[in-house]
Amino acid sequence: MLRLFKNKFFLLLLITVFIFILMGVTAKQNSKLNWFSNTINVIFSPVEKFFSGIGDKIGSGLSYFGDVKEVKKENAKLKSDIDKLEKDTADLERYKQENDRLREALNLKNQFNQYDSIGGNVIAKDPGNWFDIFTVDAGTKDGVGNNYPVIAGSGLVGRVLNAGFISSKIMTIIDVDSTVSGMLTKTGDQVIIKGDLSLKEQGLCRMDYIPTDEDISVGDSVVTSGIGGYYPKGIFIGKIKEIRQTNNEFTRYAIIEPVVDFKRLEEVFILKNKNVGNTGTDGAGK
């Protein structure tokens, strides 16, 4: 009996040590062992995709029944909206021109020209409550690689944590381990955008290292600065929602509301540098 217990104890110790080594090896992104998890993910991904589709259908199906009365009201509203939208279209055209002009002024050349975008649907989300990672149904077979930047609409979502064969893990910018080098569009100063545990649930993140003489105000926009290797310069991150003063230091931080709505994220685009490997490997060396 004692020997058995000893054996079990020894086995436990052996497994623990082995896993610690495994953790150390696989913590590096370009680890050779990733093929293993990629292989098993090939089994999980299609099923997850299927269930995710069902979940979406149920969600939209439930709202269908509740909405019959609303439809009439909505129709009237939509008609009036069309008028408004026509006016908005004209406005947007004007903004677009203004945007181009401002971009030029800021020296933010349209760098996305040298990127291909690979579309992907969100198929599964991190089961725990600590992190904000999701998987999309695009992988190395579509040309996705580690550390490629991910956007949705016009805003930054995050980066590819691990590209598998048919699916990839994506870490969002609101994840606690995410750090993005940002730039205030008003002044061009560098800031750091980090995920925060207490802000994650509301889909917000925090901005640190704001220069003390910097004059920031609520509503200022933040874009990526291009420093750090993961993200190209000039991707829109979000706007300042709130500025907070820390009481024990002369420092302050701001709360950023990303343009991307992380709760309703369904489709993303992964940016792939046409000069193959540039974005992907830059970051990995960090």
Binding site: L22, T26, S37, I40, F44, E48, P127, G128, I133, D177
Partner: peptide, 12 residues
């Protein structure tokens, strides 16, 4: 399984 689908490293 959780490590494989979502972990930042294998084994945690």
């Amino acid at each position: 399984c959780q490590d494989i689908t979502f972990g930042k490293m294998l084994g945690f």
